[in-house]
């Protein structure tokens, strides 16, 4: 670990000034401290934003405003999240362990980096994300956890967050502040696919800071939503496949379907094709399967993860089936 300085941001302006002069943003540290220790990342200055005001409040239109420094555990336990956005509470609770959820912040969760073991293996593996142009040892390596959607010949890593899968499904908007002022980006546009530049993971510009996340008012399919995570052990493991699903049904027909997938791509994957295919149809297992197959038409299995495609299909059918059954 190279030496670095540490400062606690006094307020948002102080944080922005420090980020502007090159400091790396430290939230709970659950990812960044590890990356620095493994020498995957280097920093000369850290600015700790985890003690900035962390409020969760209802917006004027009945949505929810969540400050970036809110801890994952706090957000998951909040009554408004549990009642109005159950998919988000469940996704947060599916992530990591109780200790890590107490530490991790919302902003840090959005910016966490892939858990691809080749990315972490500085001494022993080639990685285009860590060192552009070096090559990718995951391609012909142990790629059970890697992407089946949106990967490139440069990078097949996945985004590890559970929370972000729920946020993608909820049409969450990320609030950013930077040298040119404030702007907002939909969560689904915030992370980018690897293409030829896997080192670029988000649209965050130099000097910009995530200040918060806004959720629109809950629609019927959001109020009736769930998150299911399939993994190699029943707790405290990253997802092989995860599904955030929500359904609204009226008179035997789906009026609104929301689906996002985790563990499949370098970004949380909003399954818009599947959602479109489900509108106005009867909520049957066959319809769910046909819809998710439409989404997965472009899926490309690697040597070790072909099972993910079938697993994604079955998990979507199971989640939507449970939601439809609970509604009936």
């Amino acid at each position: 670990m190279t030496p670095f300085g540490y400062a606690r941001a006094a307020d948002r302006a102080d944080a922005l000034a420090r980020v502007g002069s090159g400091a790396r943003v430290l939230g709970g540290g659950t990812n960044l401290v590890d990356l620095l220790r493994q020498n995957v990342e280097q920093a000369s200055e850290l600015v700790d934003v985890s003690r900035l005001e962390g409020a969760i409040r209802e917006s004027d239109d009945g949505g929810l405003l969540i400050d970036a420094s809110v801890r994952n555990a706090t957000l998951a336990a909040h009554p408004l999240v549990r009642h109005r956005y159950p998919v988000l509470a469940r996704a947060l609770l599916a992530g990591a362990s109780a200790q890590i959820r107490n530490m991790a912040t919302v902003g840090g969760n959005i910016l966490q980096r892939t858990r691809c073991m080749y990315f972490y293996d500085v001494e022993g593996a080639r990685c285009n994300k860590r060192q552009p142009g070096a090559g990718c040892d995951a391609m012909d390596g142990f790629n059970r956890y890697h992407a089946v959607l949106g990967a490139s010949d440069q990078c097949i890593a996945t985004h590890p967050s559970d929370m972000c899968v729920a946020l993608a499904m909820l049409d969450a908007v990320i609030h950013l502040s930077g040298p040119d002022g404030e702007r907002s980006v939909p969560l689904t546009d915030f992370h980018v696919l690897p293409n030829a530049t896997p080192q670029t993971e988000t649209v965050l510009k130099p000097g910009e800071l995530i200040t918060g996340v806004e959720l629109p008012p809950p629609s019927a399919a959001v109020t009736h939503s769930e998150y299911r995570k399939v993994r190699d052990r029943s707790s405290y493991a990253f997802a092989l496949i995860s599904v955030a699903g929500g359904l609204a049904i009226a008179e035997g027909r789906i009026t609104e379907a929301r689906i996002a997938l985790g563990g499949v791509a370098a970004k949380p994957w909003r399954a818009t094709r599947a959602e479109t295919a489900l509108v106005c149809v009867a909520p049957t297992p066959d319809a769910f399967l046909a819809a998710i197959r439409e989404e997965l038409v472009g899926a490309r299995p690697l040597s070790g993860n072909g099972f993910k495609i079938g697993l994604a299909e079955r998990t979507v059918v199971a989640v939507l089936g449970a939601l439809a059954g609970a509604r009936a």
Binding site: Y6, R8, L26, G28, G29, T30, V33, D34, L46, D48, S50, A73, A98, Q99, I100, N102, M103
Partner: peptide, 19 residues
């Protein structure tokens, strides 16, 4: 390495002492 920080359980290995 779990300890209690202001009453909450955290991992002391991923917490900088400065934090």
């Amino acid at each position: 390495c779990t300890v209690l920080l202001d009453g909450n359980r955290v991992l002391s290995c991923l917490t900088l002492a400065a934090q």
